[in-house]
Structures are given as C-alpha cells and as structure tokens.
Design a protein around this nucleic acid. Structure first.
Lengths: 185, 185
DNA sequence: CGATACATGTAACCGGTTACATGATTTT
DNA sequence: AAAATCATGTAACCGGTTACATGTATCG
C-alpha cells in the first residue's frame, strides 16, 4: 500500500516502540542501551536521524515540550499512517530475501505483533516461519554434506552451529504456537 | 601489535578466504553468493572496496593476470603481514563489546582457526565462548523476569527465542570441545 | 558554588546496498 | 551474428558509528 515504510530495522524498532507510547529520542536511547533491544544499535547518531526520517515520512509526529527553553524536549508519537505502515510490515509474508532468512527482523516484527494482529494471524506467521526455517535447515545440511574436511574441522563445526541455532528456532516457533493457541481467550 | 587489522567483519571473511588460496574479486563473490557465507554480504560494491582497503593496509597483494587485455583479472593473495594480522584477530579474547556478544564475528573467527591455531588454543576459545554465553543467558533471564506481560505475550516469547538460541550455542561449544579433544592427534 | 552526572543532540567519516556499465564467452 | 550469460567491476546514495558539543539537574 503506502510506499512509506520504515526502511531499516532500527526504524522499525523505533516505530514499534513509539507505537506503545510516545517517547523522546533520549527515552528511546535508554531503551536501547538498557535492554537486549540494543542489539539493533543504540547510538544517538542512528536514533535521531531515524526519527527525522520517520517524521519526514509522516509515520511519527513530534510535539516540542518546553519550547521556550534552550534545551527543549521533543516527544515523538506514532501517527495513523505510521500505525497503518507498522501493521503492514507486521503482515509481510515470511520469506528468504536473497537466500538469507533475516531472523532478527522477523523476530522484531513478531515482538510487536500482539498489539495489532489477531491470534490466528500470529500463529500463521509462526507456522510460515517454522516452514521456512525447516527449508533452510535442509539447504544447510546439503551444504554440509558437500563440505570437505574432517568432522572436527572448524569450518564444519561452525556450519553445524548455524544449523543447530535455526533448529532451535524451529522448535521455539512450534512451542510458541502451542502456547498461544492454548491460552484462554 | 599491528594497528592494521581488517576492520569490518566482511574484510575479515575475505582475508580468511584469500588466506586459503588466492582469489579474484569474482571468485570471492561466487563464494559469498553460493554458500551460507553470503550472510556476510555478497554485494560487489562491498567486496571490491574491501579488497582495496585490505591491499592499502598491506594485508593482501594482487597480481594482474592478462594485463594487456581490456578486461584484466586481478588475483588477490594474503601477505605475510596479512597472515600475522589474521592470526592476531583469531587470538582476540572473547568479550562482549558494548554488552552484545557479536556471535557472527566470533563464529567467523572460529571457522578459520584450525589452519593457524593449536588445538589447545581453539579449545580455550570455545571455553571462553561458552562462559560468556552462559553469562549472557543469565542477563537475559534477569531481563525476562522483570518483563511485564503474560507468558504468551509476543515480546516475552521473542526474548525466549533469544535465550534458547544462545543456549544452543553453549551446548554446541561444549560438544565441539569434546569432538576436538577426542580427535586422535 | 564548583564538579559531576544526566539529558539532548550534531557532524564527519565510512562501510554497505542498489543500480548501472562494460568486456568476454557461450548458446541459438 | 544476435542474444544470453558470465566475468569484472564503478558510482551514488544512505544508514550507522565514533566523537564531540552543549544545556540542565544534582551533590558535595
């Protein structure tokens, strides 16, 4: 729909956060520095420009508190367009862009879902994710089988690490489905 | 030692690859596009500049094949300084830079180790890794315990995904240690 | 009241992505 | 010989990191 979607994963994280409640750049920075969300970068030189971009796209709007003082405080809130755009991102199908499953982006989307999507949609997302992950495991096993080197070679072991990590993801997704489905409405 | 170290993770991947055998930019691109190494970006606009940087740093050197033709082929090989620098990177201690364990970089380093490091060093690396990962799990559990929301809330589930993923890493590391130690010399 | 920590940003640099360009080789 | 594909790159743009700047509250 709208061509105005948050482009980077950090923008998406910010959009999801200000959707929960309006925040200043500093508030956001605190979230990123004090929680594992910091995985998506916690530097002010990333956050403030991202907020400007989101504002330019009309996805967030800001009100300036204490406008007459020298150090004003700018609080950003999501707009209706922003909410629409966020939901659209949450609803994107689960695919491998360029052969690599961008798990961090997918998980970030998932983390914001329960505020906006029906339970059935969330479950469908997890089912797609589990399928894609299974496919990816198959591909990695294929690669492994063609790999030269002994079973103790570091390259092979590193690949096995990758395989086991995403197998853990598949198990998690299926368990999450059950947890969500068994929850009383 | 040398202040000339490969800066980005992609540079490190390239350095490790040309250390195995000399390759052209195109050869490298093929590796990145056809294997899971593509995780570290497979775009020519990243690879060629990275090669230039490595060359400027003296970590790789190139010979131009078919120099008189219009489309020459430039093959890059690691230098002695490059090999030293690579080994220095492989020997870096396992730490959390800015609170986030950069697993992808650590695993990339690991993948290149067996050509250059003693078995004992590799095992020590894995032990450090397992410890750091255990610490990180503790931190994440702490975060989880302070998280509001029901056990089925998406945010909590996403965090659990992270926890389980790095627990899988810890198990992998300990299993890899055993595999390497039990290998006959 | 001076020092320290908290709050709120800006600017320069740099690495990566996307899109484009162009020469050689193979296929039809 | 034209079309398609392989091989080898370049350029513009853009997002992120690092380092710096400056204002406000707090604490000794």
């Amino acid at each position: 729909m709208s061509a105005n979607e948050p482009v980077s994963i950090l923008s998406l994280a910010i959009l999801g956060l200000v959707a929960q409640k309006p925040m200043s750049g500093y508030d956001l920075r605190k979230v990123f520095t004090t929680t594992p969300m910091g995985h998506y970068s916690n530097s002010p030189g990333a956050i403030y420009p991202a907020l400007r971009r989101l504002e330019r796209q009309g996805l967030v709007e800001s009100i300036v508190e204490r406008p007459h003082e020298l150090r004003p405080r700018q609080v950003f809130a999501i707009t209706e367009a922003g909410r629409k755009s966020l939901v659209a991102v949450l609803r994107e199908p689960v695919t491998r862009g360029e052969g690599a499953l961008r798990l961090d982006r997918l998980l970030l989307r998932f983390a914001f879902m329960d505020a906006y999507l029906e339970r059935a949609e969330i479950v469908a997302f997890l089912e797609q994710l589990a399928e894609e992950v299974d496919d990816y495991v198959k591909y990695l096993r294929q690669v492994e089988s063609e790999l030269p080197g002994t079973p103790e070679s570091c390259g092979r072991l590193a690949l096995e690490h990758g395989i086991e990590g995403i197998q853990a993801t598949a198990r998690w997704a299926r368990r999450a489905i059950k947890r969500i489905e068994n929850k009383e409405p």
